[in-house]
Design a protein around this nucleic acid. Sequence first.
RNA 1: UGGGGCGUCGUCAAGUGGUAAGACACAGGAUUUUGGUUCCUGCAUUCGGAGGUUCGAAUCCUCCCGCCCCAGCCA
Length: 562
Amino acid sequence: MSQTETPTPSNFIRNIIQEDVKTNKRGGRVVTRFPPEPNGYLHIGHAKSICLNFGMAAEFGGRCNLRFDDTNPLKEEMEYVESIKEDVRWLGFDWEDREYYASDYFGQLYSFAVQLIEQGHAYVDSLSAEEIREYRGTLTEPGKESPYRNRSATENLDLFERMRAGEFEDGAHVLRVKIDMTSGNLNLRDPTIYRIRKTSHDRTGDRWVIYPMYDYTHCLSDSLEGITHSLCTLEFEDHRPLYDWVLKTLAVYRPQQIEFARLNLSFTLLSKRKLIQLVEGGYVSGWDDPRMPTIQGFRRRGFTPQSIRTFCDRIGVAKRDSIVDLALLEHCLREDLNKSAPRVMGVLKPLKVVIVNYPEEKVEELEAINNPEEPAAGVRQVPFCRELYIERNDFMEDPPKKFFRLAPGREVRLRYAYFIRCEEVIKDADGNIVEVRCTYDPTTRGGDAPDGRKVKATLHWVSARHAIDAEVRLYDRLFNHPHPGGGKTDYTEHINPKSLTVLTDCKLEPSLASAEPESRYQFERLGYFCADRWDSQPGRPAFNRAVTLRDQWAKIAKKGGS
RNA sequence: UGGGGCGUCGUCAAGUGGUAAGACACAGGAUUUUGGUUCCUGCAUUCGGAGGUUCGAAUCCUCCCGCCCCAGCCA
C-alpha cells in the first residue's frame, strides 16, 4: 500500500503519537477508533478520518476499532451499519474482530451513572427541555442552577431507577451531571447525560427506555476499549473538558482526545443535511449517484480506493479550516489509473469515415498496446476496415490555427493503424457533416511512414462493422461554484445543470463487450471510464466517466474561443 | 460583553530561535503513434498587522486585526 512518489508530510497528530510512543506514555500502545453514527452514508470527509485512524494505528503497530455510536434510536438504522462496513472495507481497511457498538456498553454506562449519582456528581432534573434551555443562560450570561439540583442521592437513585423501569414519559426527567452552571464553556453547565426515549433500539430492542448521550457515552466507550488517541473533529474541542471530567470523576482509564479540522472540498458539499436534500430533492439519483461525494458515489463513478487513500495522505492533517482543491482528488485518481488502467478505444460522438481506397470486404487485425505504462499488460488485436468512426470533434471543416486534427486535405494518423487524408466532406440537406471520405496510405500500416514524414495528430477510432454500442455517462462537477452556497446564495443555485450528459450512441472497440462491472479503462485521449456497477451488462456495457484526461487542446480552445 | 480554536504561495501544507520543504494549480520548454504520460524550468527576500526581545524571529513577548466553533433531552 505504500506508494513511494511523494513523501507524506508529517502532521501534528503523528508528532504527538510519535512522542507518546517514545516516552512510553500509556504503555507505548497506539489504539484508535473510527466511530461513525449509523445515520447516513459515509462521504469523503469520513474517508479522511478513516485513513487517519487506521493509518496511525498501522504506522505504529497498533490497532483501530470500528465502533458504531448508536445511542440515538430515533435516528439510526442498521441499513447504515451495513453500508458503513462495506465502505470501510472497500477503502481497504480491516477492523478484524473489533466491531463494537456503543450500545454494547449500555449496562456499564448505567452502572457508571449510578456511581456518579452516589458520588453526588449527577442528579435527576425534572425541568422541561425548554426550561433547561432557559436555565442554561447564554453565551455571555451565566446559567442558573436547577431547583432539582440538590436532590439527595437516595432520591436521585430512586428516580433514575424508575426512569429506567419506564415509569415516566419521554421528557419527564433527564439525568444531568453536576459541574458548573456559570462556566464560560456551555458544555460544562450541567450537561444532560441520559434522556428517556421510549423507542426500541436496533440492537438492544426494548431493553432500554433511557439512552445515554454522546458526551457521556463517547469518552467511556473510548476508555472501555483502551483507546490511546481519540481523534475527532474541531467542533468537539469544547467538549474535551467534559470528556476529561467524566473519566476523571469516575477514576477510569483516560485516553487523549485530539481534534483536527474536517475536510472541505471545492465544488462539493459535505454536510450530511445538504447531501440528504440533494437526494430527496431529486437533484441526484441517490446516495450512490456518481456525482455524490459519498464513498458509494465515488466508487460508482470509478474512483479507486488507492486514489482516495493517496488523497487523504496528501491533504495532511491540521487544525485550520481549509478547502481542498477538487483538482487534487482528480489528480490522485489520474495518477493511479494512468499506471493501472488498460487503454482502449471508444468513440463517444461518432462521425463516419470511409476509406475510399480500402477494399470493401477486407478486415485487418492491428496490434494495440494495452498499457504503455505497464509492458506486462501486453497487447491486443483491434479490427480495422473500410468504414470507421472517429470522434466528431476530431474533425473540423474550417480549423483554427492550433487545431491539428483532421480537416479537409489534411493527413493524420489513426492510432495503431494508418495515415489517412481527408478528401471529401459529405453533408446532409441541412448542411450537417454526416461523413468524411478519406484515402489511406497502405505503407503506413501500424502508424509509421517509411518515408519518415510526420503527422501532427493521432486519432482514436473504431471499426464501424465491429464496434459495439454502449451508453456512456459523462459526469462533471455537481456544482459550478467553488464554494456552493457561499455568501448569501442558496447552494441549489450553484448546481451545475450540465453535471450529467448521457450519450447513448457510443461506439466502442469489441473487446469491451465483456467488460466486468466496476472495471476501469482509459478511453484513449478521452479519460478514465468505469463500467457501471449496476447498469452495465455483458454485451451491452454502460460506462461512467470518472475523470477526463488532462487536455491541452481544451485549454487552447477555451482561450481562443472566448 | 463569555468560552474554545485558527491565521505560512491561487489551494492544501511542512517548519517548534539559525536565515521559508513538498504537493496540487498555473506558466514556459523537451520527449511522445494518447494535444495523455514522463522530463526539465519558473512560481512566498517572506510567514494576518504593528511594535519589542535577540548577533539572529514564521518560530519568544505585547498589542491589534480577521476567520471558525459553542446556548440539542443530536453526534
